[in-house]
Design a protein around this nucleic acid. Structure first.
Lengths: 230, 230
DNA sequence: AACTCCTATATTGTCGACAATTAACTAATA
DNA sequence: TATTAGTTAATTGTCGACAATATAGGAGTT
């Protein structure tokens, strides 16, 4: 139904697996930001042919995880404050629209699932654990994104933007203290979707992402200050 | 500065040229929608190796101009009403944000250029020619998009979304009667940007795109009705 | 010593061939 | 006749080799 081959179906071809492996290694910093990607080196390292590596690198370029120059080669993107800012601006626009469309297109059953997911999170918060867990937060956002039923939108967010954001999160250690506040924001968004108030859902989602951005930037700044260089 | 290698720099490699040629042929309907892209066939047709064709097809997939299935092959996307709807939803979100950012980041010189571009268009309208010319309209939108100074945003709009939209326009013959009204909308957007009113600029751009969408859908509908199938 | 030009080396770009998979066709059976 | 299994043909996936380009280093000159 949706074209997210790499999400719904498991990878079938060597190039698929290599692409996913490379992406993971880049996102998690095994391959450092700004470092060069030598095709021959990687082909021996991952035990595949250069053609496979080339295809993987091409796909990574489409995700904006690496940058290529003709006849020179590919480098992993650098992590900069401007880059993070740009990312969150795009995310605000796209995911705001996703929330708007989700309020229109999600089925009642899907909305109920979303509510029960929120309840589970609420219990987690009450039990003292930090709510803003990677997995839980991602689950929440993914459901709304998928709820938009817009394949273009879904693909842009899930296939590229989220991996880049995760790269910043993982490598600059952005756990953040936004524990209970984020939960309330989530709750209000779900309420708006449940009321089929598309306008409000978009607005609340955009504000939620704006807050998240400000928090991330603070974390990034302190991270830069604590290091000599990045 | 900006990563738009294929926009700013001219293509240097055979794969670049082939990609651009293939993209043009798909957008302009030389290669029909929903038709299969045989690698061997294309490699003989364009007189390049299969590896080059494969790389081109991979890039086309990233632009959402073709869809691939592993071990089966690639097909040109189909032109559907839902597809057009999805496209315009994404465009509204992204280009609205672009207008917002342009109001913040465009230099005074760039804004003046935009104003003089508008004046040129005004004269064209007065002289009786239709304003909503492909070239003029595109020029206007591109300047605002580039004015956002957000490379992610720019890349998404210029490298993929706009080619898809143009594919619909060209193949379904959407010239549209939105002649002078579109001009007024453009004028108001420029005014908002000139006033550095980011909020208003985004809102006006979104409405402008919404109008364009409704117009396109009307054209598409009548196009479908005049044909037995599409 | 600084600069330019040239050469050598390493890396990317391109190609044709082989391997693996899918789709179509045929034949056999219920 | 419909269905299933097997076989064949065609297409895609993968690979290693060769060609073209860029970077680095050294020789020569001012």
């Amino acid at each position: 139904m949706v074209s997210l081959r790499l999400i719904t179906d498991q990878p079938v071809t060597i190039a698929d697996k290599t692409f996913i492996q490379l992406r993971q290694d880049i996102v998690e910093g095994v391959i450092r930001p700004s470092s060069k990607l030598s095709e021959t080196e990687l082909s021996t390292k991952y035990a595949v042919s250069r053609a496979v590596i080339r295809e993987a690198i091409n796909r990574l370029e489409s995700c904006h995880l690496v940058e290529r120059k003709a006849n020179v080669g590919a480098r992993v993107v650098a992590l900069t404050q401007d880059g993070l800012e740009e990312l969150y601006q795009v995310r605000e626009a796209l995911e705001g629209m996703a929330a708007r469309l989700a309020a229109i297109h999600m089925t009642d059953a899907e909305i109920n699932d979303l509510k029960s997911l929120l309840s589970t999170h609420f219990e987690t918060v009450q039990s003292g654990e930090t709510y803003y867990q990677e997995a839980g937060d991602l689950d929440f956002h993914y459901r709304i994104i998928l709820g938009s039923k817009n394949t273009q939108l879904i693909s842009m967010l899930v296939d590229s933007l989220y991996h880049l954001i995760r790269m910043y999160r993982v490598q600059l250690g952005m756990a953040g203290p936004r524990v209970t506040t984020a939960f309330d924001e989530h709750r209000h968004i779900v309420q708006a979707i449940s009321n089929r108030d598309a306008e409000l859902a978009e607005m609340l989602m955009r504000r939620h992402i704006l807050y998240t951005k400000q928090n991330s930037q603070k974390t990034l700044l302190s991270h830069i200050n604590s290091q000599t260089r990045m």
